[in-house]
Write a protein that binds this DNA or RNA. Sequence first.
DNA 1: CCAAAGGTTTAGGTAAGTCTAACCTAGAGG
DNA 2: CCTCTAGGTTAGACTTACCTAAACCTTTGG
Lengths: 224, 224
Amino acid sequence: MISQAMEDYLKAIYKLQQTIKPVPTSALAEHMGFSPASVTNMCKKLAELNLLHYEPYQGVVFTEAGLQVALEIIRHHRLIELYLSKALNVPWDQVHAEAEKLEHVISEDLEDRMAEMLGDPQFDPHGAPIPSRNGTIFRPESESLIDMKAGNRFVVVEVNDDDSELLRYLGTIGLYPGTELLLVERAPFDGPLTLKVAGKQHNLGYQAAKSVRVAPVETSQEPS
Amino acid sequence: MISQAMEDYLKAIYKLQQTIKPVPTSALAEHMGFSPASVTNMCKKLAELNLLHYEPYQGVVFTEAGLQVALEIIRHHRLIELYLSKALNVPWDQVHAEAEKLEHVISEDLEDRMAEMLGDPQFDPHGAPIPSRNGTIFRPESESLIDMKAGNRFVVVEVNDDDSELLRYLGTIGLYPGTELLLVERAPFDGPLTLKVAGKQHNLGYQAAKSVRVAPVETSQEPS
DNA sequence: CCAAAGGTTTAGGTAAGTCTAACCTAGAGG
DNA sequence: CCTCTAGGTTAGACTTACCTAAACCTTTGG
């Protein structure tokens, strides 16, 4: 009933609707690399199945059912990523590609077993939150490193999982979720950022910095 | 290049060619539940790809390349079965269905990691041999329980993995690969067989007995 | 109120895998 | 050795699932 292509659309819609609601079909088309016509087509199908509310010229919004399906797939994806990383030592820059394929064929039973084995984890290896079995998800506050001011300390909360080259680089400088960093300085305009991680300085390109989400570190821990 | 459907054909051909060579297209059609026309069609495609030698009206035989592909898929399938069984405690009557889906999407890298984690195992949970990475396979001598005479002792070598109801029953009576049994008696014609397993007697239907492959137990261990 | 940006419709294409129905072939029995 | 039939093949068409290009329609903002 729900094809793999449909699942990919729902995942993309989930991602986009965190920024824009309703999601314009053009944004979807761009994100997925399909023509706008294809996207309109598929959106109508998904609306038929009551997974989306589709208003011509306005874009799409999830129905409750659609949101649940999307979260289920995302749960698959992120649990698989974490499982591969922890149980089979797959490097964190490879788990995304593997999970892309596995998420569509894994059974709920298998997923439950993996979740149990991992102790019902909250986050995947890139810091993205794993939706719970009943479809709730909690995303911690974070901001893109690109918007931060030099001279402050941050913790890495989450990084983009789909650029494996970037992940490999971040790995070499030790920039994982939970890692602390100091934003030393920012070159003007779209220039690179200079970071200090574990005592060593590194440069991070402007584009790369967009993919790193951080939270400010509390330097003093006095409560109010 | 090689689609999932093709992989399924190659698997089926591998199974059948253990009994008949060359494999008649009609046998394949019956085994897979497709029309003879569809099978002829696909066999021609696979021959195009140099995976099969196809002689019209005679049937198909693997090329070396085709055999390697078939063994690779079978290795995927059986390693996955064993992995699910050992690492995630999936019951042995369910692993086949899961493996059917996963075998088509798993990467070589992941497979290697699973194999390593399992210590390069020789057999899957049903006793079927796992082809080695370089495509060699060793199947121990065994005969179907259906052909054995009453009054003798046997070890279970292998059982069919695709009948999950049967597997569940065999599980309840403790009949796994490696288990010893005594064939107490056989009802005439196509009647059930009476077995003694771990001191308890059980009946096994005629059809079920076909799926159980055994080897005779050496009662005396004096060498010649 | 109108233009252009954005979105939709229509019509059409491709690819993979399947089937039906008509036809051919091999080989066994008369 | 010929013929009949079971088995196998061919041709053609269908389905499903997805995609596109190009023409057309709508919305929105100046």
